[in-house]
Design a protein around this nucleic acid. Sequence first.
DNA 1: GTGGTCTAGACCACG
DNA 2: GTGGTCTAGACCACA
Lengths: 123, 123, 123, 123
Amino acid sequence: MLNIQPSAPEPIYRQILEQLRRLIAAGQLAEGEPLPSVREVAVMHAVNPMTVSRAYGLAEAEGLLKRLRGKGMVVAAQSGRTRSQSERLALLEPLLLALSRQVQELELPADLVLRRLGKLLGE
Amino acid sequence: MLNIQPSAPEPIYRQILEQLRRLIAAGQLAEGEPLPSVREVAVMHAVNPMTVSRAYGLAEAEGLLKRLRGKGMVVAAQSGRTRSQSERLALLEPLLLALSRQVQELELPADLVLRRLGKLLGE
Amino acid sequence: MLNIQPSAPEPIYRQILEQLRRLIAAGQLAEGEPLPSVREVAVMHAVNPMTVSRAYGLAEAEGLLKRLRGKGMVVAAQSGRTRSQSERLALLEPLLLALSRQVQELELPADLVLRRLGKLLGE
Amino acid sequence: MLNIQPSAPEPIYRQILEQLRRLIAAGQLAEGEPLPSVREVAVMHAVNPMTVSRAYGLAEAEGLLKRLRGKGMVVAAQSGRTRSQSERLALLEPLLLALSRQVQELELPADLVLRRLGKLLGE
DNA sequence: GTGGTCTAGACCACG
DNA sequence: GTGGTCTAGACCACA
C-alpha cells in the first residue's frame, strides 16, 4: 500500500506521512479502517519501526489517525470523509507551482509539458 | 534573477544550483555571461555568502560556470549552447513523475490536473 | 458511578483505580459495599474486561477492595472508614503542585485562577 | 529555564513541549528569542539529544518555534505576541477540570481546596 | 499482540 | 557550530 524509497532525499517518515495524507483525502483509506501495524510496515519495507512510528505519531497529532489502545491505528473520523475534488486538487498546488516555475526557467512551451504529463497520467 | 525561498524545505544552495542549471540549459544565461558576485547575491537575498559560494562552486565543478580570475564567474562555454527541447524536458521528468504519482494517490482525474496546470502555465 | 474517558492520555485501568481510591477515601463507597462486576463495568463503558479486572486487581492488592468468593468485589473493611479531610486533601496534593507550577509558567495572577476554580467547584 | 523530571509519568519530550507552550504563551520566551541548542539542553538535563530534538520538532510543527538554518531555533513570530490572560487561562482549563472532578470525588469542601491552592500560589 | 519512549551512536546537511 | 535522520536494541504500558 505504501510506496517507500529509502534513497530519496525526502525523509522516509515524511514520505509515509504525506502518502497517508493523500490516501486518506482520496478516501482510499476509509474512515475507521485499520492501518498495518508499525512492525508490519517496518518489516515489509525494511526500515526501523521507530521511523514508521514517527510517521504514525505525526499523523495522529494532525488528526488523520486515531490510536485504539492495544489495537493499533485506524483512520480518524473527521478525516474519513472523502474530500471534494477541489480540496484534493489544493493538496497538489505546491507541486504544480514548483513545476510551472521550472517550466518557465527552462523556457519550455506549455503544450509540450502538458502532453508529456498527459501521457504519464494516461498510463 | 534568482528566486530564493529561505524557508523552503529544499536547501538554499540547492535552490540556486538547480535554477542555474535550468537557466543555462534554456539559454536565459548565455555563454560567457557574467554572474552577479557572491556578495551581491548574498546581500540581495539576505543569505549567507558561504551558501551562495557553495552553489557557485558546485556549478563550477559541474562545468556550468567558469571562474575568471578577478572577474568572477561566467557561464561556461560548453554549457552555453542552449540544449534541445527534449533535453530540457528531461530535466523536468523527476518532478513530472512525482506529480503523476501524487495524482494517482489523490484519485484525481487527469483532465482536471491538466487544466489546472495549463492555467498556471498560461499566466 | 465511574467516569471513564477512553481517549484520555491517562490509561483506563489507572483512571478506574484512582477514582476508586478517592471514592473510598471519601466514603462515597462505604465499607462492605459491593462493586459492579467486571463485566458490567466493561459493557457499560465499552471497555475491555481485562482492563477493568486489572484495576480491580490492583485495588485489591492495595487493600482497597476485598474479593468475596462468588459474590464479587466489595469495599474492604480497613479502607471503609472514611479518611479525615486532611488525609483526603493530601491525595490532591500532586495535582495542586502541578497546577501551581503551570500557573507560574503562564504568569497568571493567583486570584484569577482561584476565582475560576471557585466557580468550577461551586457548580 | 526548563524544568525536567525524568521519573515523571509524562514523557520527557512532552514535558518540554508543554513548558514551551506555556512559556511562549506568557511571553517569558519572547518572539524571535533564540532557544538553547538541542545539545545544550541535552547535556544540561542529562537526556538524549534526540529527545530534546523531538520536542523542538513538534513545537516547530505547531508553529511555536521557527528553524533558522545553521543558527538554531527561535520563538516564532505569531507565537511571540503574549497571549491575553483569558487565552492563557484557557490553557489551564483541562487541569482545573480534572482538579474539580477529583475534589468532588473526595467530597472536599471548596474553600479548603481554595485555601490550600492559594497558599501554594502565594509562595 | 499493539504503540511509546528512550538511549547510544553514526552519519548527513546546512551555514 | 546548528538541527535532522536513521538504526539497533532495550524496556515499558496497554489491551
